[in-house]
Design a protein around this nucleic acid. Sequence first.
DNA 1: ATGAATGTGTAAATTATTTTCGTAGTTTAA
DNA 2: TTAAACTACGAAAATAATTTACACATTCAT
Lengths: 288, 288
Amino acid sequence: MAGIMTMLREASGKLHPQERRAAQYILEHGMEAAGLGITELAQRAGVSTATVSRLCKTFHFSTFTDFKMKLSAELALQPSAQSYQDIVAGNPLEDIVSAMAANHIRSITDTTRLLDLKKLQQAVDVLAAANRIDIYGSATSGIVAEDFYQKLVRIGIHAASYSDSHLQITSASLLRPGDVALAISYSGETPETIDALRCAKENGATAISLTKFGANTLANLADIQLFTSTLEEGMRRGNMASRIAQLHVIDILFTGLVSSRFDEYVPRLENSYQMVRKYRVNKGVAEG
Amino acid sequence: MAGIMTMLREASGKLHPQERRAAQYILEHGMEAAGLGITELAQRAGVSTATVSRLCKTFHFSTFTDFKMKLSAELALQPSAQSYQDIVAGNPLEDIVSAMAANHIRSITDTTRLLDLKKLQQAVDVLAAANRIDIYGSATSGIVAEDFYQKLVRIGIHAASYSDSHLQITSASLLRPGDVALAISYSGETPETIDALRCAKENGATAISLTKFGANTLANLADIQLFTSTLEEGMRRGNMASRIAQLHVIDILFTGLVSSRFDEYVPRLENSYQMVRKYRVNKGVAEG
DNA sequence: ATGAATGTGTAAATTATTTTCGTAGTTTAA
DNA sequence: TTAAACTACGAAAATAATTTACACATTCAT
């Protein structure tokens, strides 16, 4: 079978008026329609339940339920939309869910495509050899910074993350050659973060930036530039996709790091989970 | 493989004898089981229909039909051989990059597929009407909590996030009816987070949980349960995919919230960016 | 015009699912 | 050890969903 949806579309012309109406509704609402019961589907399509039931029979499905199952199996396989979707007013939650999934997936694939393996490898090497790692980021990027910090702690790497501008500078001013500073900012133009990275660099630390793709102050300043995909104007509200992309890069960095010294780091990672578990008296497992 | 089957396998040990029997049958017969009605499934598994129905409730599916649909959607995807990739020793960075992209994308699609729109809508409604919102999370989940907090602040919603266990309880004890508490924990078994949510609930606040899919203490406690896909054993190291999935759900919640009061919230969101820009003297745009 | 054929909705019959309730077994406390 | 309180579970009642039977239009051919 070359797809239920295709079949519906093709046969649509030959169907009885009301059946076509039901078929049309299914074609237009896809996933949403597949989740409904016959009663609600009929109501929304503006036909009787009997008509829907007969539509299924017309296509030789044994029952409506049979049709529904096969349809949703088919739709589950369907690849999701390939373009960014903007947030608009009064969208049904259903649309928001699929738009968000599309955006995040797009953000990850775009970022992956733009990654420069050489720079990434350099970053991993530098981080692996670092005496001490400082991570800077404000607001949303501060969260990404904190996330990386937490990961590094678990494998026993001496790291710190700062989102406060004074602390950033304070810490940066204490860095020395052999240390690494990672500055995160989607725009690459966050003044505090720029200042902190400049200060770190002046003190001899290796400077890594993580920004949107293209020319920006932070990347220009850095020794090693890492990039996430650039989003369209409307999509920046909420910094959602950009943050996902940043975390994606962080995860790659971290995994690269762990992989490079697998035998040393993995037991530590494992151990950190065990210890958290152990020192939580009498209670269940906790994995955050 | 992730999602329902993984969850069933994992939880199997904790289930009541007859429920386990039903779960076992589903695990062993996959596709075949997904096609059956509750009556026949119960018969073949050697249990009563009531037990099967209860099994679905145990895992927080709204009905047996809901369970069946999500299961068959999951199984339909199986043959496409995408599966989570574990971290291994000495992987070339190139492999890590593609594995990470695959994992994150999988995590997002799995989570999206398992989302319960009704519960999601309830959560959005409750959050929109909330007097005040408390968000609890430890470690990695604390980062997700903080992220949501930052978003809510930008649209002028009175929210707070706590990862410190004492502060969590302190704040929870001050909640009142009309307030909302959102507790985040991948495992759903983080003691501090559970205590905080319980406390919040006892004080009359509406309790929302965000955990891995299935039965867990936190979800059982909550008034509204939100879920991310369940990851396989090896994938948990580093909490990477789980955190991406949690953020994905948070983004949907937030967007749903903004969309529900578009005219009120979007200007605020826009304004918050403008103001940050304005009060940063002489420097470029900053979007985190 | 009139009868046959066709398409459709309503409502009854059927089927499926959930919930209630009682029992039997198990744990807890005295 | 016994009584009380739980707990798990299935039978069956209640509810919900789906299909089928039937009646009523409408169309089309005669």
